[in-house]
Amino acid sequence: MVRRRSQPWIHQWSRPIIGAIAIIGFLLTSYLTISKLFGAEVACGTEAAASCSDVLSSPYAFVFGLPLSLFGAIAYLAMAGFSLVPLAINPEDNKKLRNKYEDWTWLFLLIGATAMSLFSAYLMYILFAKIGGVCLYCITSATFAASFLLLTLFGRFWDDWGEVFLTIFVVAIITALGTLGLYNSIERDIQGNVPVLNDQGQEIITPVPNRAPEPPTGWEITTTSGPAEIALAEHLTEIGAKEYGAYWCPHCYDQKQLFGKEAFAKVPYIECAPEGENGQPDVCAAAGLEGFPTWEINGERYAGTQSLQRLAELSGYQGSTDFKYALPR
């Protein structure tokens, strides 16, 4: 009597596990994509919020003008399909078709897992070496990609490991060349200060410099103001509006960049950090602020960095709205 070899548990559950991880990854990246496209704040947690938001708003987080998370969502959706579709075929009804789909989709899973793992590894290099921030979403996605590769390699019996390693080698070479080519172009734009424009022709502001803010003023404002920015700043002062901020706050820096150096000098700004220039911590404490920046306009408060178009609407500004700069999507 021949004893039938039992199948390891990882071979039985590898596809469902890959599918579950892929679905979670799809939901995660879809949330990030929708948030970016609609200009909503991404929930990052209290301690890492600034760093996380800065990473997700950096030039490295956009490809062909679209959020990188959009391409991640497509990749996760594909991995979910490759892993779960064969499970929908009942082997008792059509075993030959089930086996055929399993063989082909394992190859696609191997290709996808290899490409995602290598690309994620490069993004981790960008995160820690170039940006110097902490992004839990990015780290989680990289972990998912590595899990895909491990589950694909050890989640089934491979007849020919030589073919497996050859596939990994070819996919790795193609992915590496594509990734380096893509990000070398982004690097040239950043280093050459090539402006990135949105659909309205506005220049997208650059992220916070990769260095600590120095009191009392923090990072230097690098944008220059136009007539519309200056007029809006003067209007906000005239109506008694206030902006509460801190020199070390990255989002406050974004707000400064939107106005430009000349216009921000006219903005009714209240510095809340004691060591900041003209710091008024007592005023900020009495105001009971929940975060920076916070705008107070016509008796109402608005938290977070506001586009100049939004400030114009909230304040009843009637002048030119030909603003030069925009927030990253």
Rank of each mutant, 00 (worst) to 15 (best):
D199Y: 07
L314M: 10
I89D: 06
A78L: 15
G319T: 03
A129I: 13
A326N: 04
Y31A: 13
P293L: 01
W106Q: 07
P59A: 09
S35D: 07
A231N: 07
E234G: 05
K242Y: 13
T167P: 02
A241I: 04
I24H: 06
W219I: 11
E102G: 00
A246D: 03
G133D: 07
L308R: 13
C44V: 07
A176Q: 05
A80I: 06
R15F: 10
G201P: 00
G201K: 06
V2D: 15
P216R: 01
Q202R: 15
N184K: 00
L236D: 08
W295F: 09
L236F: 12
G65H: 09
G291Y: 00
N184C: 00
A49P: 00
V2E: 15
A172G: 12
A172R: 02
I126M: 10
G304L: 11
F62A: 10
T143R: 00
G155Q: 10
D93W: 00
L84S: 07
S30A: 15
Q7L: 14
E296C: 05
I18T: 11
L27M: 14
P250K: 01
V2L: 13
C252Q: 02
Y101D: 05
T114R: 03
E229M: 09
F62W: 03
L289V: 06
A285D: 15
Q306F: 01
Y137T: 00
F64I: 14
G112T: 09
I168C: 07
K95Q: 15
A145Q: 08
P328G: 08
L314D: 04
A326Q: 09
I126L: 12
N94S: 14
G155C: 05
W161E: 10
F82C: 12
G226K: 08
A146D: 04
H11N: 11
T143K: 00
A88R: 02
T294Y: 02
L118T: 14
W9S: 13
P91N: 11
T46I: 06
F38W: 08
W13H: 12
G45K: 08
W295Q: 02
I204H: 03
F62Q: 10
E229L: 07
A286N: 12
T224S: 14
Q318M: 13
G299Q: 04
D54S: 13
E102H: 04
L289Y: 09
